[in-house]
Amino acid sequence: MRSTLRSCAVVALGAAAALSLGLGSATADPNLLDNGSADPAGFLPDSDDLVGTGSDTIQFVTDALARGHNASNPTVRLASFDATNPTTGLPGGNITIRPGVDIARPNGSGAGITTLTNNTSVDFARSSRPSNGSNAEDLLAFIPFAQDGLSYIIDDASLVPTNLTAADLKDIYTCQLPGFDAKLPQASSGTRSFFLQQIGVTEAQIATAVAAGCVDDTVQEHNPNAVDGDPFALAPFSAARYESNPPDPTNPPANIVTLASGVDSGAFKATRNVYHVIRESAVGTAKFDSVFGPDGYICAQFAAAAGNKIEGFVGIGAACGIPDDDR
Results as ranks from 00 to 15, higher is better:
Val11Phe: 09
Gly14His: 03
Leu19Gly: 11
Leu19Asp: 14
Ser20Tyr: 14
Leu33Ile: 05
Ser37Lys: 15
Ala41Thr: 10
Ala41His: 14
Asp46Cys: 08
Gly54Leu: 03
Ser55His: 04
Ala64Phe: 14
Ala66Phe: 05
His69Pro: 00
Thr75Val: 12
Asp82Lys: 13
Asp82Gln: 12
Thr84His: 10
Asn85Phe: 07
Asn85Thr: 05
Ile95Asn: 08
Gly100His: 02
Val101Arg: 15
Ile103Pro: 13
Gly110Ile: 01
Ala111Met: 01
Ile113Lys: 06
Thr120Met: 10
Arg126Ser: 14
Ser127Trp: 05
Asn132Gln: 09
Gly149Ala: 12
Tyr152Cys: 02
Asp155Gln: 01
Val160Tyr: 06
Asn163Glu: 04
Ala166Met: 01
Lys170Ala: 11
Ile172Asp: 04
Gln176Pro: 07
Leu177Cys: 03
Asp181Ser: 13
Asp181Lys: 12
Lys183Tyr: 09
Leu184Gln: 05
Ser189Leu: 02
Gly190Phe: 06
Gly190Asn: 06
Arg192Thr: 04
Gln198Phe: 04
Ile206Lys: 09
Ile206Trp: 02
Ala207Ser: 14
Ala209Asp: 01
Val210Thr: 12
Ala211Gln: 14
Cys214Asp: 03
Cys214Asn: 01
Cys214Leu: 00
Val215Cys: 04
Asp217Gly: 08
Asn223Val: 14
Ala235Gly: 04
Asp248Pro: 03
Pro249Met: 05
Asn255His: 14
Val257Asp: 02
Ser261Pro: 00
Phe268Asn: 04
Arg272Trp: 11
Arg272His: 13
Tyr275Trp: 06
Tyr275Lys: 01
Ala286Leu: 13
Gly293Arg: 02
Gly293Gln: 05
Gly296Thr: 02
Tyr297Gly: 07
Gln301Trp: 08
Phe302Arg: 11
Ile310Thr: 06
Ile316Tyr: 12
